[in-house]
Nucleic acid binder design. Structure first.
Lengths: 148, 148
DNA sequence: CAGTATCCCCCCTGATACTG
DNA sequence: CAGTATCAGGGGGGATACTG
């Protein structure tokens, strides 16, 4: 019936979020945008994605209000893609993914990237869970730990 | 060449995370698991996903170490799926998605779900950005705001 | 209930060529 | 450089039937 289950109408806010930025490339585009990437070619080089896909994703993200187009800052005739406040608010999600990846997706001693560091190489704070295992979690169980 | 771009070897921790839990259903499964869902049929009912897909996703998440199987707590012969510490650590990501969805994916006055509330209906704190617009963001710019 | 097996369509994705 | 247009394929994803 449905080609793919749509979550736009879902009652759960997590599902609605994933409906907007849950596909394969969107969050990587947002990650790059948070790092200051603005130009089509920069996104393409960073992501290694086909031009058609990139154009489609950028168009979708603009339509969703995550990105907006702006005149090129260098005076060229093209546009740039910059995050809206809605898009910038995804920083919390990207930072969470970044930290989780660092903690659980690398072998011991394996170096992390600094190129993709959304904090631009600064020492970063961490989001820790202070809730005991087995008990329900709430956002108040998240604590921000300053870098040592 | 490649059926789909793999990010497992990518140097960026965000990309590695998305390689593990970036597909359509994984984070929704984690969301339900954080809410206490453990049984196959519960996941299926909650997600409305085809059984084949659910079985594949659960298998993948177990293989990735996000979930682990455990004997059924009610004595039946089947297994249950519970989060590992690695999986529980995704709470930060799910909470971020949930909050972003609430803030940006609902019309004015439209009610949110409480069923999918990963905090089990408790009043929840919020993660706010205290960084000024236009400046680089870092995790230290995230502040946890207690419920009013 | 908890899956596995099978069928099949459609869209995602990638590659290439083309335009301004 | 910044896209658009087009094509081909592979698998994601749904539905159903079947098994233990």
């Amino acid at each position: 019936m449905v080609k793919r289950t749509r979550l736009q109408e879902d009652v759960c806010p997590v599902a609605r979020s994933l409906d907007v930025i849950g596909d394969w490339w969107s969050l990587l585009i947002v990650r790059d945008a948070l790092s200051g990437v603005r130009r089509f070619s920069e996104f393409q080089r960073s992501l290694g994605v086909a031009k058609g896909m990139l154009a489609a994703r950028l168009r979708d993200l603009v339509a969703e209000g995550v990105l907006e187009t702006a005149p090129a800052s260098d005076g060229s005739a093209y546009q740039e893609y910059v995050l809206t406040p809605k898009g910038r608010a995804l920083y919390v999600v990207v930072a969470g993914l970044r930290q989780w990846g660092e903690d659980h997706c690398y072998g011991p001693g394996e170096a992390h990237s600094v190129l993709c560091d959304v904090a631009h190489g600064q020492p970063v704070a961490r989001l820790e869970l202070k809730c005991a295992e087995g008990t329900p979690l709430g956002p108040e169980d998240i604590v921000v730990v300053a870098p040592t």
